[in-house]
Simulated assay, not measured.
Amino acid sequence: MEWKIAFIGFGTVGQGFAEILLEKKELLRERFDIKYRVVAISDMLKGSIYDKNGLDLKKILDMVKAGRKLDEYPGGIKGLDALATIKETDSNLIVEVTYTDVKTGEPALTHVKTALNEGKHVISTNKGPPVKAIEELKKLADEKNVFYSFEGVVLAGTPVFNLLEYCLAGNKIKEVKGIVNGTTNYILTRMEEGMSYSDALKKAQDLGYAEADPTGDVEGWDALGKIVILSNTIFNANLKLEDVPREGITNITLDDIKSAKDEGKRWKLIASARIREDNTVEAKVGPEKLSLDDPLAGVNNAVNALTFVTDELGSVTIVGPGAGRRETGFALLIDFINLNRIFG
């Protein structure tokens, strides 16, 4: 099968995936027998372009990096919005990488539903749809016999769902807990070195870890969306954002940091979910003082980590990048390879 790819959104992550596709085209063909062409791209800021014969991805990347619009691409059909690109092109794989809104799931939720209803496969790094409607989307994908995967929504390219599905298969997962937001982990690391919260936040913003409005990170909203996805995927919990207590790091002071250090502990923003004795699920996000012998306590800077507490292996911790252009693009590559294994 030849995969005909349409990008919905073409920001940092979409471009990162496009770069990987270009660079690894021969490897994908030789090792995985993957053949593809990118036929459409639709971005609310950059415009849209569709050519059923395939787009020159290198030319498009060069244009976008130079600040030019997709409308300037020679040839092809211009002006299709996201939904028209999904419905009216002959694509069979939708890469949904628009901006994330975990509170409403939109516009990505509508994009994913539309694609699945059209019988098209979807890979995505957007947290919104799985936060709001993971069970509905999985059921719809099954009914339409199509693939919907979102490996990158928790730790970017560091494996989470594939780790659970393959390497930890056969284990009962009792608890999952971890550092799932690199911005707050970076800030806490700098504060432990003596930097004030405001200075550490400014440094994170200068480095591109934190947005101009850092609320989603420092108030725990990003971590909240991720633990809801993990809870609902691992434990079938059917939790909503409002069901989970959330606290960020804005109330942690340098005195708190020093006090924890004196106790042989370290503050981390921890997202966790566990099965209670009555088989209900308890999830939460908030700062915790961890003993230095906890593997999560040794994870510093913008690095992320997750610990899975299992019945057969005990605690298994995976550490790696949780964000980044290529790192998140790599998660889409893994989803693409898995799609090809099943439907190729």
Rank of each mutant, 00 (worst) to 15 (best):
G79Q: 01
T158C: 05
V95S: 06
V153H: 07
G170T: 06
D142Y: 12
V112E: 13
Y166W: 11
C167E: 15
A141I: 08
K87V: 06
T158M: 04
I187M: 05
K127D: 10
A108S: 14
G105C: 14
S124K: 10
K172G: 00
K132P: 04
V160F: 00
P74F: 15
T183Y: 02
C167H: 14
K120E: 05
K174D: 00
D199G: 06
V97P: 03
V180R: 04
G182E: 13
S149L: 08
V95N: 07
T85K: 02
I123G: 09
L155E: 08
C167W: 14
V160Q: 00
A156K: 14
N92S: 07
T125K: 07
G178I: 10
E192N: 05
Y99M: 08
G194K: 04
N117K: 14
T104R: 14
T104Q: 13
M195W: 03
A169D: 09
V180N: 05
K172R: 11
E151A: 12
F147D: 02
D101T: 11
Y197F: 15
P74G: 15
T183A: 04
K113V: 07
S198W: 07
E192D: 03
K132L: 13
N145C: 11
S149W: 11
F147T: 05
E72P: 07
M191D: 03
L80F: 04
E118H: 02
E135F: 08
V146F: 02
H121V: 01
M191E: 05
Y166F: 12
D142P: 04
N181H: 08
K172W: 10
K177T: 02
I187T: 03
V97A: 06
K113N: 03
Y148V: 07
V122W: 00
V97C: 07
Y148N: 07
Y99E: 10
A108I: 11
G178S: 08
E88N: 04
F161D: 02
Y73I: 14
Y73Q: 10
N162Y: 14
A84F: 02
V180W: 05
P107V: 11
E72H: 10
L109Y: 12
N117G: 14
V131H: 01
S198Q: 13
K138E: 15
A115L: 01
Y99C: 06
E193L: 06
E135G: 09
N162F: 12
I86E: 02
N171I: 12
K87R: 12
E96F: 02
G105W: 15
G194W: 03
H121W: 00
K127I: 13
A169Q: 09
G152H: 10
